[in-house]
Design a protein around this nucleic acid. Structure first.
Length: 557
RNA sequence: UGGGAUGUAGCCAAGCGGUAAGGCACCAGACUUUGACUCUGGCAUUCGCAGGUUCGAUCCCUGCCAUCCCAGCCA
């Protein structure tokens, strides 16, 4: 299969070619999430790149929990992360690791650095540290920089033993206090943290910083290409410094790419966590969340998400991908693989006045018009049906070709009917629509060859499932009111007390499981437009949530 | 005013000195038992700007402009 090549692939090929730094070696990548939150679609991009690059070159990709900061991490996330990755379909084989498993080795390497005069224990307090950090053009300083090796060694050992308080001291690399790159101004390698670690328990009270731990973890696992996002470009010199100056078994190469950003959504874990903790949403898997589990609950398929991530490409340009592209990828997949069902979300009764009240017949409707293997389902038809309110118009607008008095329309798979009238209540709301069917058009066919422009969905009043649904507004709405902000529908547990809207659905939908999103395909009648939605739906309070978490899409001009 | 990056259509994105791929979105038309799908056509005389080198520059050089990231004992 012809695959496209991105700039990372070009680097990898150069590295494994004769004379390259990894010639003869197996390409080995890793996906290193910090277990401090749930994975979101941005992580899927990284996953696609990490696992995809390895796969493309017949290599391997490890899964590693980057758990070097005990105060932020939790086992709950470790499990959820694995579940989401599995669901997406990526497989790490038996190569599942924890960064914390290398703590002992990392500590040893730090000691080695001290012995060679490349690290020292600094006793600047956090406040003092900030005051000494210098500025643009002004070098940082540390009165402890030239502390004798023996002294640092002893102090570092005592740090580990828990003889000091948090903030009392740190282990710093001795690099360049005047560097324009602040990451090189003698960065902190170890800090004291008296916290319970989700795996190490109370074993440690000194924890390595990401910048020190990560290159070591990569090297320990024999990673060849350490792929990460753009904000780590500034850290690469430090990454390389650690690799060069510690006794590690391999020399991985860090390559950075632009992380995923999408309009109308927030990708910041911190902000997503706020939405969960402050209960703006039901949880990490709320269907409005861009998390993998949220998308799953919302009805997205693994294939659609992965396909999306593959198609957006990999580059170093900070870009904002349009949400419509993700929706396209879902539609593409669903269109091919999803079973169709007729659903009426805002019912109005349609009475076929010339159809006997005691008669009923069964039609078989294909489950997927483009895929016969998916079979068909029986649907009963009788005198009284539910149709969508939008499919009838008392005053039809131009080019409207569904039901209005005098017009013919096809009831999908059943009959052609002609609208003969309608009733309204005291407020003028349409309560019932009347029509007459043409017995010659059984199955929706037109033996006389006449054209019928409109085809609508319907369900049998006497034989349909009530499905309770909940309409969601988008979490982050479109700043342009006319661009078609769409809701989506979630099927609630039938026992749920949260009945927000009744709907009439065909029998087939009885198989819908709680929280299945049974539609998202933009298939005409299945689409609900928020501008027309009735009041009372759980509309997310934008003004509160968006205050500091909404980043409008960039616009030019 | 320091360091690191990036600028190709509304949005992604190929292109690597030989005269601007592809996808999304959008528009027009055909088809259609979902106004969906599918199909056809349209959509950058121009690659942030200005110079320079060259027979020839989106690709090379110089300068400028714009945007993003960096001063956690976070990752």
């Amino acid at each position: 299969m012809e695959e496209s090549k991105n700039f990372i692939h070009a680097f990898v090929e150069e590295d494994v070619a004769p004379g390259g730094r990894f010639f003869g070696q197996t390409v080995h990548t890793r996906f290193p999430p910090e277990p401090n939150g749930y994975l979101h679609i941005g992580h899927c991009k990284a996953l696609t790149i990490d696992f995809g690059t390895a796969e493309k070159y017949a290599g391997l990709c490890n899964l590693r929990m980057d758990d070097t900061n005990p105060v932020k991490e939790d086992v709950e996330y470790v499990d959820a992360i694995q579940e989401d990755i599995r669901w997406l379909g990526f497989s790490w084989g038996d190569r599942f690791f924890y960064g914390s498993d290398y703590f002992e080795k990392t500590y040893e390497l730090a000691v080695g650095l001290i012995k060679r005069g490349l690290a020292y224990v600094c006793q600047l307090s956090p406040e003092a540290f900030r005051e000494h950090r210098g500025d643009v053009g002004v070098p940082a300083t540390s009165p402890y920089r030239d502390r004798p090796v023996e002294e640092s060694l002893a102090l570092f050992e005592r740090m580990r033993k828990g003889e000091f308080q948090e903030g009392d001291m740190t282990l710093r690399a001795k690099i360049d206090l005047a560097s324009g790159n602040f990451n090189m101004r003698d960065p902190v390698l170890y800090r004291i943290r008296f916290a319970h670690h989700h795996r190490q328990g109370e074993k440690w009270c000194v924890y390595p910083m990401y910048d020190f731990a990560h290159p070591i973890q990569d090297a320990m696992e024999g990673i060849t290409h350490s792929l990460c996002s753009l904000e780590y470009e500034d850290h690469r010199p430090l990454y390389d410094w650690v690799i060069e100056n510690t006794d590690v078994p391999s020399k991985p190469r860090q390559i950075e790419f632009a992380r995923l950003d999408m309009n109308y959504t927030v990708m910041s874990k911190r902000k997503l966590r706020r939405l969960v903790e402050e209960e703006y949403v039901d949880g990490w898997d709320d269907p409005r969340m861009p998390t993998i589990c949220g998308l799953r609950r919302r009805g997205y398929t693994p294939a659609s998400i992965r396909n999306f991530c593959e198609r957006i490409g990999v580059a170093k340009t900070a870009s904002i991908v349009e949400y419509s592209f993700l929706e396209y990828c879902l539609r593409e997949d669903l269109n091919q693989n999803a079973a169709r069902a007729m659903v009426v979300t805002r019912p109005v009764k349609l009475t076929i006045t010339n159809y006997p009240g005691d008669k009923s017949e069964t039609f078989y409707v294909e489950n997927n018009p483009e895929n016969e293997e998916m079979g068909s389902r029986p649907v009963t038809f009788s005198r009284e049906l539910w149709i969508e309110q939008d499919d009838f118009a008392a005053l039809p607008p131009k080019k409207y070709n569904r039901l209005y008095v005098g017009n013919e329309v096809r009831l999908k798979a059943a009959y052609i009917v002609r609208c003969t009238g309608f009733n309204t209540d005291a407020d003028g709301n349409v309560t019932e629509v009347m029509a007459e069917y043409d017995p010659e058009t059984r199955g929706g066919n037109t033996p006389d060859g006449r054209k019928v422009r409109g085809t609508i969905h319907w369900v049998d009043v006497n034989n349909c499932a009530d499905v309770e649904v909940r309409l969601y507004d988008r979490l982050f709405s479109d700043p342009e009111p006319d661009s078609g902000d769409r809701d989506f529908i979630e099927c609630l547990n039938p026992d749920s007390l949260k009945i927000l809207s009744g709907c009439k659905a065909e029998k087939a939908l009885e198989q819908v499981k709680p929280h299945d999103t049974f539609q998202f395909l933009r298939l005409g009648y299945f689409t609900v437009d928020s501008r027309n939605s009735r009041p009372g739906y759980p509309v997310f309070n934008r003004s509160v949530a968006l205050k500091d978490s909404y980043k409008p899409a960039k616009r030019t001009g």
